[in-house]
Nucleic acid binder design. Structure first.
Lengths: 143, 143
DNA sequence: TTCGATGCAAATAGTTTGCATTCTA
DNA sequence: TAGAATGCAAACTATTTGCATCGAA
């Protein structure tokens, strides 16, 4: 049994609930998201999809990623340069995006807890639980 | 005396120190940055510049903004959609970017203090003091 | 058998680059 | 007067859109 196959089906069920349809292209993209590394760009994901399904177009991947983001299945992280990257939203966590090398470090959601509370209490601003992202320099890129 | 004119000259002095030159286009852009609202896109800034100096091109504005960012004079904030916005880096502060309406709420740097400490201690990641930016929904855009 | 999804092409937004000319230091 | 900055055009990257056709429900 392919690991995560049930997750793919669960997500597709959710897509159907929202009036969407379970198509081969979607199944492949979800499998790719599950199996490969996190934080890949739409283009990288499309390349991986195309390895198994050559005629799935980049625009289809964008369309699907956009929907999955709406459904809360994937997160989109936009660093200060370059394309946005996508990954499965398996748990609430934040991102430390290195402005030097572009690497993304995931940190548990609690690290952002104090900030989220202060933003809510002080400004009525509700921090999105899946879109934390702050810039800086990672351990390997200190001057 | 124009308020902030001395700041313009101080920045230009800094530009010269780094081998740059004080040109009219730069003077105008700095004045525009000082006088108008914060968090404008390159295009909006170019429009404001062109009101006074019609033949300053958008590409020149981009080039200058990039240099000012290197010098730490302006910050660049990239929301989840749309163009990056720029503003003077007058004090350490963070940004709450609304993913619904695109508005940017500034919050004092201390709000990010706990997060910055946790990132440094736990991951060796030094959060950039001027590039805090987290997404969510502002007070006016709650569902 | 209807309506959403796809293939494909083309358009768009934002930003960067190349190069001859102009101007600051 | 040397080298940086600019005007301008054009390239480029990331993303979105339009539309006829196809396929899932």
């Amino acid at each position: 049994m392919v690991p995560g196959a049930d997750l793919v089906e669960r997500v597709l069920a959710r897509v159907r609930e929202h009036g969407g349809r379970a198509t081969p292209a979607r199944r492949v993209l979800l499998t790719v998201l599950l199996e490969g590394p996190a934080h890949r760009s739409a283009e990288e994901l499309a390349a991986a999809v195309q390895a198994g399904a050559p005629d799935v177009y980049l625009s289809t991947v964008y369309r699907h990623l956009e929907e999955l983001e709406r459904l809360g299945v994937v997160d989109r992280v936009r660093g200060s340069h370059g394309p946005a990257t996508y990954h499965l939203a398996l748990s609430a966590h934040g991102h430390l995006v290195c402005e030097e090398c572009g690497s993304v470090t995931e940190v548990p959601g609690e690290v952002f807890g104090g900030l989220a509370a202060a933003a809510r209490d002080g400004y009525g601003f509700v921090v999105s639980p899946r879109h934390y992202a702050v810039s800086g320099r990672c351990a390997g890129c200190q001057p």
